[in-house]
Write a protein that binds this DNA or RNA. Sequence first.
DNA 1: CTTGTGATTACAATGGTTTGCAATGGCTCT
DNA 2: AGAGCCATTGCAAACCATTGTAATCACAAG
Lengths: 341, 341
Amino acid sequence: MALKTATLREVAEMAGVHPSTASRALNPESRALVNEKTVTKVLEAAGRLGYRPNSLARGLKTNRTYTIGMLLPDLTNPLFPPIVRGVEDALGQADYTLILGNTDNDPDKEGAILRTMLSRRVDGLVLATARRAAPFVEQLADAGIPVVLVNRVSEDVPWPSVSGDDHAGIGLAVRHLVSLGHRRIAHIGGPQDLSTGLARYQSFVAWMQSEGLEPDPRLIVFSTSFHEVAGAAATVELFARDVPFSAIVAANDLIAIGCYDVLAERQLNVPKDVSVVGYNDMPFSDKLCPPLTTIHIPHYTIGVRAAELALDMIAKRDVGAQALRLAPALAIRQSTAVPSA
Amino acid sequence: MALKTATLREVAEMAGVHPSTASRALNPESRALVNEKTVTKVLEAAGRLGYRPNSLARGLKTNRTYTIGMLLPDLTNPLFPPIVRGVEDALGQADYTLILGNTDNDPDKEGAILRTMLSRRVDGLVLATARRAAPFVEQLADAGIPVVLVNRVSEDVPWPSVSGDDHAGIGLAVRHLVSLGHRRIAHIGGPQDLSTGLARYQSFVAWMQSEGLEPDPRLIVFSTSFHEVAGAAATVELFARDVPFSAIVAANDLIAIGCYDVLAERQLNVPKDVSVVGYNDMPFSDKLCPPLTTIHIPHYTIGVRAAELALDMIAKRDVGAQALRLAPALAIRQSTAVPSA
DNA sequence: CTTGTGATTACAATGGTTTGCAATGGCTCT
DNA sequence: AGAGCCATTGCAAACCATTGTAATCACAAG
């Protein structure tokens, strides 16, 4: 059945009514307007023909596509799949569909993807791309389209955001190490032009101070990206500084893996010689060698909340520019221990 | 600029031409039909107004949405992100957009997602969902929409497929173990109602035989899913059989991790006491403890090829029902060694 | 018997773009 | 000068569903 997709007109014809009546019968909200018996007829005809409303036509008329677009740097980064699933699940509940775009942190790509998304008339946008200065911001604001930020705080931007509470998370990490007895704690920060990189670095400094430990600038190195190789390079740099330390707070798990690699190279044992704390609790961080103590972020929930916010905005519910920060949790595993020295 | 998205009519008006002319000027293929100077005028007007064609209207008219849908069980499974990226990248090249749907292997969900995708008039479909018996097959065939299968062979189905060459991959694993001196090799298979589970099991048996080793049925256990816990349960079952073995070929990396867990519990060392080979070479399998020897599958390329096939089919190029099998590679790491006994 | 009421249903316009066809205008050729 | 051709552009229909408004009908009330 239904070789060609049936049109509303055909359904109406089969049911012996006018297309407009069929339309109303098919739509739950307007269904009350049409006679019960007619509804049955139409529904049956629709079923027999395998009718699927053409969402293009509908969207054209109603100016809503029930589609939202999501931009992220790279789906291959284990951070994102849970977030995307969260978004998708929450969206699915509301019969919304997700369009995905990987930017690779390339502004050109980002612009191009954004353009096609606008061209497709997405009802809303979820931006999980990390760069702090987005040149499109004003265009988007102009377009008057709901936007929700994920994993980055809103800077001078009228949109709500959802993220893990980085300040609290770094606090968890620092205090965990301090409570174990560490005093000379190093930080391998992320790129400082990414909001998470900057925030975690600042929080690190703040928490060290609030613990009464003056952070040594020589024990703070910035990685050029949130990936293993860059993390390893930064760790090498850290050793080059030749300042003793007993623990490392890495800006994310990938960087922590980079630390692992360099530490192993130097025959240093984790956690006996150096304790390492990661950030994100990405999948399989508990399977590393040793299992990584890290800060767990409710990624899935972040995705869900972001989608819900977008949906709220689309429904014209005012959500303001709130910054939703979800509480992190310390996942203590085996990469941290009391300092040996 | 461009508070409200500009319409073609407005662009035409600004350029002082008829909408149809503007349309032709804007579209590269029909651009040749219109005077060069007019084209310039139109293009400029479009630029000034920030015109973005309404793809809904266009799709309605042309019956093409430049959209393809992709169904997969769960994005959170590390297997999929690289595939999805491959699909998305290849699609992006051709100005196509990807719509994603997670089915969780739930037929109802799968049906629902499929319906919305058809309702959205996707130009093609990439099915990476693993279950073997799909009730929608006939409906899709009827709908006459291009479909490409990923990671599952086409059984009685008129569509092309792209996957890793499981037979060759299992061969790599078995021969690697045999060459190390293993003779009593166990297999923890995947669910047998999933095509990959079945294929890998059958290949295991075949390769054992071709190596002159009669596979012991007591050393073959099937996991109820492709996940760690199920893999661990299957490993427990394997030990319960109380038949000696020196190596395990796991149907995928997650199951291999399950093996790791049970082995560790029993104080058995990998690879000294038992060698383990995984399958898929998923991200971070090289960071496991010990780094997992596994079969590398070119996931990204699989995604790219699948997208290209879909694009070909959309372009009415006949691709037939070919089954594209991409060559796997053996990634030797530290979970395999010569047997101790 | 007329008018008013309420419940249904039909009509027609609309959304933005594409495209077959017709119209226009300038030009060449005879 | 008129016929014919080409390049360019305008016209209008079409794609399919939604929705404001008008039409219809049955029935009750006056």
